[in-house]
């Protein structure tokens, strides 16, 4: 029982990341009909927002280290600490959550610029061309990031208070040995909240209703005198923000490096296909499902039985789904079934 619960928990945080990225991909595909291979790069940009914020907060001055008395020793101390003492230290500690505030406007801007500057010229082109141009864009973004931040992963600190592990076993009334890192729990909750927010926005606001109408029948909504294009652009920006947030919060789990976007991109595409192209609930469900499946496949008992299965399980599922049921788990009938 413990083993099963811990595997489910393990799958949830990764699944959360998959679900968030896949949600953004599906939004872009459902509204604009764009297959965006640069979406992984947006995830990575979010992560590097966190890195930048951390770097900015820890801009340091060299000050005399008073604890060393034999000779003149210096150490780097962040300005924030010099100015505000303990408050400054706390702010630095909370750099990852703080980056969310920065990441939202930055990623929204990136999304709008990307859509207006590039994507809109590709509505009428084939999917292959869309893939190619966004693939090129992904390379460009990735290399720019590498130019500024180097090729090595940059670890991110998390606030002291959530750095330990939660005693999940006691909470659920199972054995005491069942512990799980707080941050991953937070990540899962965060993902749920963001996903819930996006769905609520689409479901319960007039704006979202119009967007959904546009997804179903763009021309008719346009004929009713609504500037559907602008709304779709904003939805694209929203997708970028979601990907960015996923990236920001994922940095403590996985130290960001310049190719993390590409690594996640392929998986998220697989997730989208498994969920069904254009189906938002499908993307989310498939994200969590595949995350959990992957963590079960990496259990030792299963690996003994089927060696190497943890590496390929997701792709295997995708292959089977595409071949047997191309519209995915929750795709609408007739959409992208060729």
């Amino acid at each position: 029982m413990d083993a099963i619960v811990i595997q489910i928990l393990n799958g949830l945080d990764k699944g959360g990341a998959y679900a968030l990225i896949a949600l953004g991909l599906t939004l872009a595909f459902g509204t604009l009909g764009i297959v965006n291979f640069a979406h992984g790069a947006l995830f990575m940009m979010g992560a590097f927002c966190a890195v930048t914020v951390q770097k900015l907060l820890t801009i340091s001055a060299r000050v005399r280290d008073m604890s060393v008395t034999f000779f003149e020793a210096y150490k780097e101390t962040p300005y924030l600490e010099l100015w505000w003492g303990d408050t400054g230290t706390t702010i630095i500690e909370y750099s990852v959550p703080l980056s969310i505030l920065i990441a939202i406007p930055v990623m929204a801007l990136v999304g709008v610029v990307m859509e207006r500057g590039l994507i809109r010229f590709f509505y009428k082109r084939t999917h292959a061309e869309q893939i190619l141009v966004t693939f090129g864009l992904a390379i460009v973004i990735q290399e720019i990031i590498r130019h500024f931040f180097g090729a090595n992963p940059i670890p991110q600190a998390i606030p002291e208070i959530v750095s330990g592990s939660a005693n999940v076993g006691t909470m659920l009334g199972l054995s005491d040995t069942l512990v799980y890192p707080w941050w991953r729990l937070i990540y899962f909750c965060f993902a749920t909240v963001v996903i819930g927010g996006v769905f609520a926005f689409l479901q319960y606001t007039t704006y979202g209703m119009v967007v959904r109408a546009g997804m179903a029948d763009r021309d008719t909504v346009g004929l009713l005198g609504i500037n559907i294009q602008r709304r779709f652009t904003i939805v694209f920006a929203l997708a970028a923000v979601v990907a960015g947030l996923a990236g920001v919060m994922y940095t403590p789990v996985l130290p960001p490096d310049y190719h993390m976007g590409m690594d996640f991109l392929v998986l998220s595409f697989v997730v989208v296909v498994v969920g069904g192209m254009g189906s938002l609930p499908g993307a989310v469900a498939a994200g969590f499902l595949l995350g959990i499946l992957q963590s079960f496949a990496s259990m030792n008992e299963i690996k003994q039985f089927l060696p190497g299965i943890d590496q390929i399980i997701i792709y295997l599922v995708a292959v089977v789904i595409i071949l047997v049921r191309p519209r995915g788990l929750m795709g609408r009938k007739g959409v992208m079934e060729s």
């Binding site: 297959v35 999917h127 292959a128 893939i131 392929v266 595409f269 697989v270 296909v273 192209m277 190497g308 590496q311 390929i312 792709y315 295997l316 995708a318 292959v319 595409i322 071949l323 191309p326 992208m336 060729s338």
Partner: peptide
């Protein structure tokens, strides 16, 4: 068995499987 983007993703999936294996 599939065309268009599904074909691309299928080949991608096989490539990643081979690479990981």
């Amino acid at each position: 068995r599939r065309s268009g983007i599904y074909f691309s993703i299928l080949t991608l999936a096989f490539a990643q499987m081979s690479y990981n294996m």
